[in-house]
Nucleic acid binder design. Structure first.
Lengths: 345, 345
DNA sequence: TTGTAGGCGTTATCAA
DNA sequence: TTGATAACGCCTACAA
């Protein structure tokens, strides 16, 4: 069925090893021999069997990514970045999705990856509750190198994270700079690390400006537009003089815009709104949404690069340095915090 | 470093093959022996090396998915469905993303997958222009079984597709049932098969209702919200009495809603709008968008099932039947085609 | 510059 | 019920 090195060798009348050398561009080969071999390869349609190669070389040139919620904006962009960089660096990518993020069955997620001898793993499940409890030294030692995306940095772990706190601070400071005094917050689910970070960025910034902070200024959402709607209603019920709100993602912000319209609050005149994510829809909401751009694709790429570093260091028996890499988000200003709503023509 | 069958065999004082039998639950083994072996496995922390297994068994238990635009709504949902079903059936999933959809370098996309001995491939790159030209019998014979997602069915190919034409017809008929007479269309890029199918569904339905069809009723977009905005402006310029428009995806529909507001057309009173996709945002646009739900996750799952069928048939040397599977989308009615805009409180 | 021998970790064939 | 031995396809010594 499949063509092997041996077949090529036989046809080219050389040894198996010679063909191997030609295929892998290693060692010195006479032009004539190389020519013969290459003709034979062409003729037979030979393709190396990577499985066999991996078995003996003990490297699969394969990375694995373990993620959750590929159907959401963040994960799909991160994984796009991971795939691009992996491909660029010559790795194949094994994709594994957890069915639940809060308490994934870590062992049955990891076992197939380890059994397939992946060279490294990117853990891209959001940090929720204590779903990081499985991370212990003894456990990690039994695994290939792991890089974690979007979790709280820990010594001894390689982490790549968006600076959510900074992003929230940028958005909040922008609202403050507009002269707003009662700055509300709609959070994500607070068992999510990212949601807590965004809250912290809001809180620090509001406090630094000497503006009030009270429970009535905070509502917890679940990332969905519906929860954003509910959140704004709750905030306005408890704090009728609210004049700005930082919403922890764009989907919830969309719900906020809808609720504001239903409640007769003009945006941005009565209420300035800033979101988080910069989803493609955000520029076309009514009004267009001020928000925070996250370099998610870049984060995925950086994670792969870090992973490769560790893999190489391990091969060279060099000392491995586990670092936390922070990536900075950026403010995108649109009409929901600045201009009046465009007048009907 | 790694624990092998041989290590276990030595410790349990049995042969390698016996351990293999225990691991794979095959053959008859005495309870005592099995016990001894299992203890040894536990003790050493043995895990089978799937690469080695695949090498000899000539099956990798791995599927590959080749896709484009994972950062968009459709692909990310389809792949979610593929991954779920693959995991359910015991396959690992290799993810490969094309950097461009129109003229992907098919060979360099496929080569690594074939070299990794994947058992099957799911081709999920949208059909654009003649980017299906590579599909020839001789080519396919050199590949493991392939299932194609969202392309025009062809004899001899396994295809799983959403019935885009039906979806467009559902939306268009809904607009007609509302009594609208001038039904416009904003298409996707017309070198996309899906875009043409949606146009065909609109056209057939409008024609069947005896309503007018003219070039002035059609504008071509590029799936983006910005192009939806431009599209509506163009339509209204050429057809001022337009009273309904079927927009070929929700992002463009979002642009249409914005443009309508700027142009002073009330939705749905002056202009009824229907989209396609049912993205999570669509229920929270102003007004909420009538649209078409596509069973994308299901499509991914069905593709994997079809692939498994073919793989099994091939192993059993049974006759392989290549079929086209159509999945039906559903109409989701919201305020953009029915109710008045909610009045400010 | 080229070839030979051995092994990577597993499964399959046959015989015991 | 169990075990020796030979593949699977490739690569790394070492030798020629």
């Amino acid at each position: 069925m499949s063509v092997t090195l041996r077949d090529v060798a036989r046809l080219a009348n050389v040894s198996v090893k010679t063909v191997s050398r030609v295929v892998n561009h290693q060692g010195e080969i006479s032009a004539a021999t190389r020519q013969r071999v290459q003709v034979a390869i062409e003729q037979l349609g030979y393709h190396p069997n990577i499985l066999a190669r991996s078995l003996v070389s003990r490297r699969s040139n394969t990375l694995a990514v373990v993620a959750f919620g590929l159907d959401y904006y963040g994960p799909s962009h991160t994984i796009t970045g991971i795939e691009q960089k992996a491909e660029e660096l010559g790795y194949s990518l094994l994709l594994s999705l957890a069915s639940r993020p809060d308490d994934p069955d870590v062992d049955s997620l990891l076992a197939p990856l380890v059994a397939r001898q992946v060279d490294g793993i990117i853990w891209a499940i959001p940090e929720i509750g204590d779903n990081r409890a499985w991370i212990r030294c003894e456990r990690l030692e039994q695994l290939p190198p792991v890089v974690f995306i979007n979790m709280a940095p820990r010594p001894g772990l390689a982490v790549v994270a968006i600076d959510n706190r900074l992003g929230a601070a940028l958005a909040t400071q922008h609202l403050i700079d507009l002269g707003r005094k009662q700055i509300g917050l709609i959070t994500g689910p607070l068992d999510w690390w990212e949601a807590r970070e965004r809250r912290a960025g809001w809180q620090e910034t509001v406090a630094r400006a000497g503006l009030p902070i009270s429970p009535a200024l905070v509502a917890e959402g679940d990332w969905s537009a519906a929860s954003g709607e509910r959140g704004l209603r709750a905030l306005l019920a408890g704090q009728p003089d609210l004049d700005a709100v930082f919403v922890s993602n764009d989907q919830m912000a969309l719900g906020v815009l809808g609720a504001a319209q239903q409640l007769g609050r003009r945006i941005p005149q009565d209420l300035a709104v800033a979101g988080f994510d910069n989803i493609p829809e955000s520029g076309f909401m009514c009004p267009p949404l001020t928000t925070i751009f996250q370099p998610l694709v870049e984060a995925g790429g950086v994670a792969v690069q870090e992973l490769q570093k560790i893999i190489r260091a391990q091969q060279d028996e060099a000392g491995i340095e586990f670092t936390a890499t922070w990536l900075a988000p950026e403010l995108v200003v649109r009409a929901s915090s600045t201009a009046a709503r465009p007048a009907p023509a």
